[in-house]
Design a protein around this nucleic acid. Structure first.
Lengths: 347, 347
DNA sequence: TTGTAAGCGTTATCAA
DNA sequence: TTGATAACGCTTACAA
């Protein structure tokens, strides 16, 4: 209830009867530069005064801002964050948890179409950034100029400046498709977002093709429904499949959100899942197990990936560059077998 | 690709051949303090040099930090943000969109058990904060001491210091229950998170009771399943209902997440929805329409609420205190009638 | 209308 | 081991 005025390092130094420099030293753990006695006097004063450092000042004085930029993609209309896709919320959860644990804060934002991230980065003196999704080239160039560690999630941009936290999307696409093939399916559609270079979708698509090829199945580009990563599109594609391709008995959706749409679209068209059509998703977002029937999907540990991304960024910030390898226990994919795939009885 | 060194206000002033003060004035729209000519010289220099202001310095110099703290609740184990609940992600989407539009950034975080928010607020010189969920009293006391506008979402804390963005939760609870009653149900369970004082859950509970009473139905506390706002608990409660209360024909779940769990629990117990048991949720998160069968629920425009919260905070920050009224078009609740409620045929 | 200069709270350099 | 003191980039009296 007290009015609360700012306690500065100067107040602390006076109370402790030492210089501001000394205070700064002990605050920053530069023990060894001060005597035990000074250190404890300072600590006592900090305690008594309830001193809270001003990060703006710190940042200005040229040290760390302890601020991390976290960028997530936006909806098509550029109006909102794609946080509605649980995949991103999970990631953010992991990131935030790890950052907070180390006393960092996160500025979460989208970035407007065509805009760069250089402004934000400079304005805020970001110590680093985690970028999800893929952007145009100039965006990455901006990023590099700021000379700050960057971790990319879900991007296959091939530039050693950036660290990436990736899963083996190609293998995931393969696993999903293989599962369908192993269950006797031969006419397998792929429903997916835009297949863009360097994107995860492309890799999953490649995995799909590899599984087909390996099984001696013909790759039919008519079976690829490619548009956007959304529930609505899944629905739409499913309608098209039901209407135009009665021979298709299985769908691999390159993301769970899309798969949910497919489920609905199929059901609207009078098809039963998995009796008439089998469906496999990708991601294993929480709703995958909540929906009805529960979705068979490629599982990745999303939260752990977020934590890993943040952990690695912090390491780069605090201990200098170090291109760490992915932790396989985080990165490993596996099939979450639930109830949307059925063995095709030989006809 | 250029190495990129910081352009300061001094660089700009030299380039433009004016003083730093002049630059600062035009940067801050204090036109009227400078001549047209100076203004345009400055603008040109800013453009040419591609000047990006340093917000740390601004903040230090005692003006705005343009930083807003956004706090969301955490999971029970205090490890992660509750961002996994789409309700919060939607809210965050709305908030972020509105903030960015005005050049503000958002620090999104949880707050550790027992910890206050004073530290963060002071460290970062936050211009304001948006707090979701409810906390212990001392938390709010801290908040007040920082003397910065605060908007509370989903809290009925009764303190004129805070602005709140609320919906009429009591009415919502009433509407949901009434719908069930109107469909002939008389044994209606409530499945909900902990009923805490000042929380939304309490209000929805009150609405439930009012509807019951109004219809001349007996309120049976055995029909209230109260534990946590989670899918798992919904599942659990549904199992208990199926096993112990065959007379219950309808469930009002005080949040969609819980309702989804109820759907699953019921289905696991061999009950069909809505044939055997009707279910109504609350919130209308996106999954509500994606699940199977699509959930009948109380709809609120969550994203718009987030935007409104942010808009109001900005107004308070930039134009001083002003307790604005809720915009009813944002706040209005309505039933989203889908497929989980069935009219009970008179037996 | 313009410019000078004193802060803002830190950190870091350099003598002592 | 300490303590003045000069940055850091910006805003804002106050003078000119």
């Amino acid at each position: 209830m007290t009015p609360l005025k700012r306690i500065t390092i100067r107040d602390v130094s006076e109370r402790a009867g030492v210089s501001t420099a000394a205070v700064s030293y002990v605050l920053n753990g530069r023990e060894g530069k001060v005597s035990q006695e000074t250190a404890s006097k300072v600590r006592r004063a900090v305690e008594e005064l309830n001193y809270i450092p001003d990060f703006s000042a710190r940042s200005l004085a040229g040290t760390r801002s302890k601020l991390i930029g976290v960028v997530i993609p936006q909806t098509e209309d550029q109006k909102q964050l794609l946080l509605q896709n649980p995949f991103y919320s999970e990631l953010v959860c992991g990131i935030e948890a790890r950052l907070r644990q180390s006393g960092y804060h996160m500025i979460l934002s989208g970035v407007d179409k065509g805009e760069g991230y250089l402004d934000t980065s400079m304005q805020r003196n970001l110590d680093g950034a985690i970028i999800m999704g893929i952007y145009q080239e100039s965006f990455y160039d901006d990023l590099k100029r700021v000379k700050v560690p960057i971790v990319l999630i879900d991007s296959y941009v091939n530039d050693s400046y950036f660290q990436t936290v990736s899963i083996d999307d190609e293998a995931g696409g393969y696993m999903a498709t293989k599962l369908l093939i192993d269950n006797g399916h031969t006419n397998i559609a792929l429903v997916t977002g835009l297949i863009r270079k360097d994107g995860v979708v492309e890799k999953r698509f490649l995995g799909y093709k590899r599984a087909l090829k390996e099984a001696g199945l013909f790759y039919n580009s008519d079976y690829v429904f490619e548009h956007s990563v959304s529930y609505e599109y899944g629905q739409e594609a499913a309608a098209a499949i039901a209407a135009g391709h009665p021979e298709i008995t299985a769908v691999f959706a390159s993301s769970d959100l899309v798969a949910l749409g497919v489920l609905r679209g199929l059901s609207d068209a009078g098809k039963r899942v998995p009796d008439d059509v089998s469906v496999v998703g990708f991601d294993d977002i929480p709703v995958a197990r909540m929906c009805n029937p529960p979705l068979t999907t490629v599982r990745q540990n999303i939260v752990a990936r977020g934590e890993m991304a943040a952990g690695r960024l912090l390491k780069a910030i605090e201990e200098g560059e170090e291109a760490l390898a992915d932790d396989p226990s985080v990165t490993r994919l596996e099939m979450a077998i639930r109830q949307t795939v059925q063995r095709l009885s030989p006809s």
